[in-house]
Amino acid sequence: MPSPTPDALDAVLAELGDSFTVSEVAALLDVHPATIYRAVKAGRLRAVSRGSGRIRRTLTKIPRDAVVEFVNRPPTPSEVAS
């Protein structure tokens, strides 16, 4: 099955909102939230974190265009080898 074009994916995501939580992106991509956090930490997925994480949890939001870029980027050699 061919992957959706960036424009088609962006159009679908535009209906859902401008940014998403880690849980929302994980549900959209059918992966565990830890996978999304690892992608953010590795720099493969752009995100904006709010809060210090001391009193309350830090809220991580992922912009719609970052999700499109992440889905359409070529896999790294380590991802291909897995």
Rank of each mutant, 00 (worst) to 15 (best):
S52K: 05
I62P: 04
G51A: 05
V80G: 07
V22L: 05
T60C: 08
G53T: 08
I55E: 12
D18E: 15
P75N: 09
R57W: 01
A47Y: 01
A11L: 13
I55Y: 10
V12Y: 14
D10I: 01
S52T: 08
H32G: 06
F70Q: 07
S82R: 15
A81P: 01
R38I: 00
L16M: 12
V40Y: 02
L28H: 12
A39P: 03
K41A: 15
A42C: 08
V80C: 10
G53H: 01
R54Y: 10
P2I: 07
S23L: 05
T35D: 10
A27P: 02
I62D: 01
M1K: 10
L28Y: 13
V31S: 07
I36L: 06
T76P: 06
A14E: 15
L9E: 05
V80I: 15
V12P: 03
Y37E: 14
D30F: 00
H32L: 10
S82D: 13
R64F: 03
T60I: 11
P33L: 01
T60F: 03
P77Q: 04
L59S: 11
I36Y: 03
V71K: 05
A47H: 04
D65I: 08
R38K: 13
T5R: 06
I36T: 02
R44D: 14
T5L: 08
S52Q: 05
G17A: 13
R54W: 09
R44A: 12
S19T: 15
S78D: 15
P33Y: 03
L45G: 04
V22K: 00
E69G: 04
A42H: 13
R44M: 07
V40A: 08
E24V: 12
T60A: 06
G53N: 05
S19V: 15
V80R: 12
I36G: 02
V71D: 00
R57G: 10
K61E: 14
S19H: 14
R54A: 11
V25D: 01
L28N: 09
A47D: 01
R50V: 09
T76Y: 12
A66E: 00
P74V: 09
R64A: 06
L28D: 10
T76S: 11
N72H: 08
L45S: 01
S52D: 09
D10W: 07
